[in-house]
Design a protein around this nucleic acid. Structure first.
Lengths: 230, 230
DNA sequence: GTCTATACCGTGATAGAC
DNA sequence: GTCTATCACGGTATAGAC
């Protein structure tokens, strides 16, 4: 059905079955797992609970995904592909429309697809946005390598775009500031309770993506545009 | 030496034996543990490895600290007390010296003690600064509650100080921005490889605290001072 | 190919002997 | 205080049923 024409040629390092190809059991596992992982973190979810919740056998996870980590990656591959495609599409539009990239419009090409995903009710996207943020912050070796390997083009194109929007920064300064900017954005979306220590818990625990963006954007924009230390 | 005038009054809810009071075995465990935790994270260090490395029996951890989590907290309590004391002392000086707090000088009262600790060669402070940052970002429930409970005064005083330095922000805006600011600072100090995805690994992997601060401060300052969305 | 039951080994915790 | 033995629980591997 799904174009398995020359299945031997392509180097498809990781499992990347489309939703249609996957077995019902595997899908059931992925849906339940995404929810539980986002709630309790990777280590907070025992396979025995997960499989029980999904109504499948304990060994099913290892059979369909190789390992618990494999299941984790599978969730990412499936969700990340359309998200990144969405970002790149917005970026492309931006690059053809405007001669000069503005920083704000550039940041919007990342934030809008995240928002769209986060607000799509039927795709469990909101859960994934939190899971993605949480995972990037938790520094999972596997996922990080997967992104770097699979989406090199994405990374390169955004590096170039940011360089264009912030020409006054040299390579080192740009790297640091992108590091900071994405730290803030992911932390905000992760809905971490981390820094409640320094804040009133009722205020910052808001989960509404629009509110988050309203607060994040000015901060990040100003930080990126800060005068360069010399 | 350090003004222990009325030592009986304070409510000291958690274990907080001074270094001198503690058993040699416990000290040995703590030193080894701090190092290993900072390298591999809490879950990355099995007690069997830890105790073998420290040359003590497996059960010693549970005997002296109650649990693996207890050991984790003990490390924090011991290191955090002087760090927080250092911050508050700097803040006090600042409040008496200047009529108007400047944002930069306020941030310095946090960063300078962290830097001093990070650069003290004989106290393993550098390891702890990374461990602290990593832990706050990883959202350990225990440690967060410990800080909130034990250092309420610290939190309140800094909230007031930031409010004074940024009077144009209302409570909600201030909470969000402090949340962001500390996210960035901790992420920078944590030395996470997280966002290497978006950067050249060689650049951002710098561990020199001075270099980190040089890049962090302008970003955070500008972010905090960003115009308010309306 | 898919699913099930079950066994294996490593983890943190704990009781009790010394 | 320290140690050994043992426990319950975690992810994983596999043999065999369908």
């Amino acid at each position: 059905m799904m174009s398995k024409i020359i299945e031997t040629v392509a180097t498809q390092p990781l499992v990347s079955l489309s939703e249609a190809d996957r077995h019902e059991t595997a899908l059931q596992i992925m849906n339940v797992a995404e929810q539980l992982f986002a709630e309790s973190g990777f280590n907070g979810v025992p396979l025995r609970l997960l499989t029980k919740e999904a109504g499948v056998n304990l060994a099913a996870v290892n059979y369909h995904f190789g390992s618990k980590e494999g299941l984790f990656e599978a969730i990412f591959v499936q969700r990340l592909a359309p998200l990144i495609e969405g970002c790149l599409k917005e970026l492309e539009v931006l690059e053809t429309e405007q001669q000069k990239l503005t920083l704000d419009s550039l940041l919007q090409t990342v934030i809008r697809p995240c928002l769209a995903l986060a607000k799509d009710p039927k795709s469990g996207g909101a859960i994934f946005v939190r899971l993605l943020s949480r995972t990037l912050l938790e520094n999972h070796r596997q996922v990080r390598e997967m992104i770097a390997g699979q989406y090199g083009e994405f990374v390169q194109r955004y590096l170039r775009a940011f360089h264009q929007a912030l020409p006054q920064l040299n390579a080192e300064q740009l790297a640091w500031r992108m590091h900071f900017a994405f730290s803030v954005m992911f932390n905000a979306f992760a809905g971490n309770d981390v820094l409640k220590v320094f804040t009133r818990s009722e205020v910052v625990s808001a989960r509404d993506p629009d509110i988050i963006v309203k607060h994040v954007l000015p901060f990040v924009t100003a930080g990126l545009l800060a005068p360069v230390e010399r």
